[in-house]
Amino acid sequence: MQDFLDWTVVIGILSSGIRLATPYLYAAIGETFGQRSGVLNLGVDGIMLLAAFSSYFTVLTLGSPWLGLLVAILVGGLMGIAMGFISITLQAEQGISGIGVYLFGLGLSDLLFQKFVGTAKAISGFKEFPIPLLSKIPFFGDIFFSQSVLVYGAYLLIPLAWFILNKTTFGLNIRAVGENPEAADSLGVSVQKTRYLTLTLGGILAGIAGASLSIALLNVFQQNLTNGMGFIAVALVYFGGWRPFYVLLGSLIFSFVNALQVWMQVLGVPIPSDIAVMMPYVLTIVVLIFSAGRVRPPAALTKTYERGS
C-alpha cells in the first residue's frame, strides 16, 4: 500500500475530480436556470444522452470535435424547446414530462446508435489542451491547466452563470418569473418567453454535458452512457440551493469523493468495493446536513402558469 498522502495521489484525486465534475457542472447549471424560472426538468439525462450520441456520431463521420459540439448544442437546444413545449405550452406536470423526456432520450439514443453505428468505436475528440505557461506551474499546472477545452469551459461557466442570474435584466426576469409569475407578468415580463429561454439554455448546457462525455472525456458512446448522471446533476442543483457557486461546490465534493474512492480501491485500502462506491452519495447528503441553510426554493417551482388562472 502506497503512502496515502503521496503527491501523486493528491494530484491524481484533484485532477480526476475536476474531470468527473465537468458533465455535472454543465447539466446542473443548465438545470439551475430552468428551476430559477420555475421549471423542474427531470429529463436532463435523456437530453444528455441524445446530444452525446449525436456529437459522437458527428465526430465519427466528419471528424471535427467542434462540429460535434455544435451538433450537441443544436440537439440539446431542440430538446430544451421540446421540454418547454410540453411543460409550458401544454402545461404538463413537470416531474412526469421530465421522466418521459428522459425515457425518450434513453431509448432513442440507443436505437440510433444501434442503427447507425452498431459496435462501439473509439473516436478522437477534444484533446487535452495544456494552457501555455500556466500548465507549467508545479502542482497546480497538472491539476487545473492540463485538461480538455470542455473542462475549462465548465468552470468558466460558473461565474458567467452567476453574473447572468444576479447582475443582468435577463437574470432578474428569470428570478422574478420563478418567484412570482403573476407579478412579473403584470410588470410586462413574459413568463412563457422567459421560461422557454431558460429551458432552451438548460437543454443546450445538458447537450454540452453529454458532448463533454462522448467527445472529450470518454471518446466513445454506449447505450445509457450517462448512467443516471443527469439525475445526480438535478440533485446537485438542490445541493447548491439554486446558486451557481454552491452548485460548483456540491459537484466538486461529489466528484472528489468519487475520485477518492477510486484511489482507495486502487491503493488496496481494505474496504468492500460496494461500500466505497456508496461514499460520494452518502457524503453529499452528510455535507448538506451540516451546511444546508434555510435556502428556499423558487416559490413557483413546478407550478405551471396560465394567464388569469
Partner: peptide
Amino acid sequence: VNVNYIGSFGDVALATEAANTHAEAG
C-alpha cells in the same frame, strides 16, 4: 496488481476515470 470495482456494469465514466487513476498510479 491494483484492482478497482466500479460498482456497476454501466458506468462508462467511472470506469474511464478508474483507468486514468490506474495510469496515475503507475
